[in-house]
Lab assay of single mutants.
Amino acid sequence: TTLTVNTQTYTFTSEEEAREFARRYGAKTIRKTNGTWEVHG
């Protein structure tokens, strides 16, 4: 199964959650914005 996250942004309140998600789905960018963490595919 392949998950494609081209134009979607996922927002997390903790860096740990964001990094775990990025690691699991191979997202390329993690960015902190206004106190939340954004993961970009």
Rank of each mutant, 00 (worst) to 15 (best):
T1G: 14
T1K: 08
T1F: 09
T1Y: 06
T1H: 12
T1P: 14
T2E: 13
T2D: 13
T2V: 09
T2W: 07
T2M: 11
T2A: 13
L3Q: 14
L3M: 12
L3C: 15
L3R: 05
L3T: 14
L3Y: 05
T4A: 13
T4N: 14
T4F: 06
T4W: 06
T4L: 11
V5T: 13
V5D: 12
V5F: 08
V5A: 12
V5S: 13
V5H: 14
N6A: 12
N6V: 12
N6T: 12
T7R: 05
T7W: 12
T7Y: 13
T7G: 07
T7C: 15
Q8D: 08
Q8M: 11
Q8W: 15
Q8A: 11
T9H: 09
T9Q: 05
T9A: 07
T9D: 03
T9P: 08
T9W: 14
Y10V: 06
Y10T: 04
Y10L: 05
Y10I: 06
Y10F: 11
Y10D: 01
T11Q: 07
T11K: 08
T11F: 12
T11E: 05
T11V: 13
F12I: 00
F12E: 00
T13K: 09
T13E: 11
T13S: 11
S14L: 04
S14H: 03
E15V: 05
E15C: 07
E15S: 02
E16L: 08
E16I: 09
E17S: 05
E17V: 04
E17H: 04
E17L: 06
E17D: 08
E17K: 05
A18C: 02
A18W: 01
A18F: 01
A18L: 01
A18S: 01
R19W: 10
R19M: 11
R19V: 10
R19A: 06
R19S: 05
R19E: 10
R19N: 09
E20N: 07
E20V: 04
E20M: 06
F21Y: 06
F21H: 04
F21G: 00
F21D: 00
F21R: 00
A22N: 01
A22V: 03
A22I: 03
A22Q: 03
R23K: 11
R23A: 09
R23I: 06
R23T: 06
R23C: 15
R24N: 05
R24K: 12
Y25W: 10
Y25R: 07
Y25I: 15
Y25D: 01
Y25C: 14
Y25M: 13
G26V: 02
G26H: 08
G26E: 03
G26A: 05
G26Y: 03
G26F: 04
G26Q: 05
A27C: 15
A27K: 05
K28H: 14
K28W: 07
K28E: 11
K28G: 08
T29E: 10
T29I: 15
T29R: 05
I30Y: 06
I30R: 05
I30Q: 03
R31F: 10
R31H: 08
R31S: 07
R31T: 11
K32F: 15
K32C: 15
K32E: 09
K32T: 09
K32V: 09
K32W: 11
K32I: 08
T33L: 12
T33N: 13
T33R: 11
T33C: 15
T33E: 13
N34S: 05
N34Y: 02
N34P: 02
N34A: 06
N34M: 04
N34I: 02
G35Q: 03
G35K: 03
G35Y: 02
G35V: 02
T36G: 14
T36Y: 13
T36E: 08
T36S: 08
T36M: 14
T36I: 14
T36C: 14
T36A: 09
T36R: 09
W37I: 01
W37C: 01
W37D: 00
E38I: 12
E38F: 06
E38G: 02
E38M: 06
V39M: 01
V39F: 01
V39H: 01
V39E: 01
H40N: 08
H40S: 14
H40Q: 14
H40K: 11
H40A: 11
H40M: 14
G41F: 15
G41E: 06
G41V: 15
G41M: 15
G41S: 13
G41R: 08
